[in-house]
C-alpha cells in the first residue's frame, strides 16, 4: 500500500497549559478529501496550527508523518515548503506588506526548495494576474497591503489564490466558507476543485453542509473535545445539519 500523505497517531497537544488535542488519530491518503466538523471551541483550528507548526501549540505526545517524514521535527517554513498549506480561519492583516511582493517571496521560497527555477518579477506578475483573474480578484487588489481592509470574502479568495500559486500537496481549509456570499462560495469551491488531483489531498473544516455540496468529501469526521469521535461518509454531514452535534456527544459519553 502507498504511504499515506498524512498519518497522525495518538496526538496530544496543548496551548498555554490547556490541553486541546487529546489523542487524535487521522490518516489521509493522496487523492482524498476529508471534512472535519465539530462544535465551536472543539480544537479544529488548533489542530491545523499544530500541523503547521505555529509557536505556542505544543505537542506533548504522539506522532505525525507527512509523506512518510516526521513532520514535528520540521520548522514551520519547511513544512510549508514541503507542501503543507493552511487556509486560515481569520487571516491576519499585515499593514505595510504589499500583496504581490509577499506572494513573490512566498512562491520563490517554495520553488527554490523544490529545486525549480525562481520567477523574476515579470514572469511572476504574469502568473499572478492570470491566477487572480480566475478567482475574480482585480489587479488593483495585488497592490494593497496583505489582508488590510479586505472584506471577509476577499480574505478567503486571497487564501485560495495563495493555494493555487503554491500548489501544495496537502491543504487544510479552515472555514473557507465563512464570510462568503453564494457567488463567491461557488468561485472558491471551483478554485479548490480545479486544484484537486489524485496526488494531493484536502482537509476541509466547516460548520455547514452547504460547502460540502460543492467540495464533495470522501470521508467526514466529527471532532469534539480534542479528538475524532465519529467517522463516516458525506451523509454524516447531512445528519449534523439536521440535528446538530448533541446526539453524537451524548452517545460518546455513554
Amino acid at each position: 500500500m502507498a504511504t499515506p500523505l498524512l498519518e497522525i497517531k495518538d496526538l496530544h497537544a496543548r496551548v498555554q497549559d490547556k490541553e486541546i488535542i487529546k489523542g487524535l488519530n487521522l490518516t489521509i491518503n493522496r487523492g482524498e478529501i476529508h471534512a472535519l466538523m465539530g462544535p465551536n471551541g472543539a480544537g479544529k483550528s488548533s489542530l491545523s496550527y499544530v500541523l503547521c507548526g505555529k509557536d505556542g501549540y505544543e505537542v506533548t505526545s504522539g506522532t505525525i508523518l507527512f509523506k512518510g517524514q516526521d513532520l514535528l521535527s520540521m520548522p514551520a517554513e519547511e513544512r510549508a515548503r514541503n507542501g503543507l498549506f493552511l487556509s486560515m480561519q481569520s487571516p491576519v492583516e499585515i499593514p505595510g506588506v504589499i500583496v504581490s511582493n509577499f506572494l513573490k517571496q512566498s512562491l520563490n521560497s517554495v520553488l527554490k526548495h523544490r529545486k525549480q527555477e525562481e520567477l523574476d518579477t515579470i514572469n511572476f506578475m504574469k502568473l499572478l494576474r492570470s491566477e487572480a483573474e480566475k478567482l475574480g480578484i482585480k489587479p488593483e487588489f495585488l497592490k494593497r497591503f496583505v489582508n488590510v481592509g479586505f472584506s471577509g470574502g476577499e480574505k478567503k479568495r486571497f487564501e485560495t489564490l495563495q493555494m493555487s500559486l503554491l500548489k501544495p500537496d496537502f491543504c487544510i481549509l479552515d472555514e473557507i466558507d465563512s464570510g462568503l456570499d453564494v457567488d463567491a462560495l461557488k468561485i472558491v469551491a471551483e478554485g479548490v476543485n480545479s486544484l484537486h488531483t489524485q496526488d494531493n489531498a484536502f482537509l476541509v473544516i466547516t460548520h455547514y453542509q452547504r460547502l460540502l455540496e460543492d467540495i464533495v468529501p470522501d470521508i467526514v469526521h466529527i471532532f469534539a473535545d480534542g479528538k475524532i469521535i465519529k467517522t463516516g461518509d458525506k451523509s454524516l454531514a447531512a445528519q449534523i445539519e439536521k440535528s446538530g452535534y448533541a446526539s453524537f456527544l451524548t452517545k460518546d459519553k455513554q
Binding site: 496550527y49 503547521c52 507548526g53 505555529k54 509557536d55 505556542g56 520548522p75 514551520a76 517554513e77 513544512r79 510549508a80 515548503r81 498549506f85 493552511l86 486560515m88 487571516p91 491576519v92 499585515i94 499593514p95 505595510g96 506588506v97 509577499f102 517571496q105 512566498s106 512562491l107 521560497s109 517554495v110 526548495h113 496583505v146 495563495q162 503554491l166
Partner: peptide, 24 residues
C-alpha cells in the same frame, strides 16, 4: 506573532519574515 506565523506558513524563512515585518 500571528503576522510572523502567516508569513512563515507560506514558506518564507523566519529571518526573512522578521525583515519583512520590520520594514513594514
Amino acid at each position: 506573532k500571528d503576522q510572523l506565523f502567516y508569513l512563515i506558513s507560506r514558506g518564507i524563512s523566519k529571518k526573512e519574515a522578521i525583515k519583512i515585518l520590520t520594514e513594514a
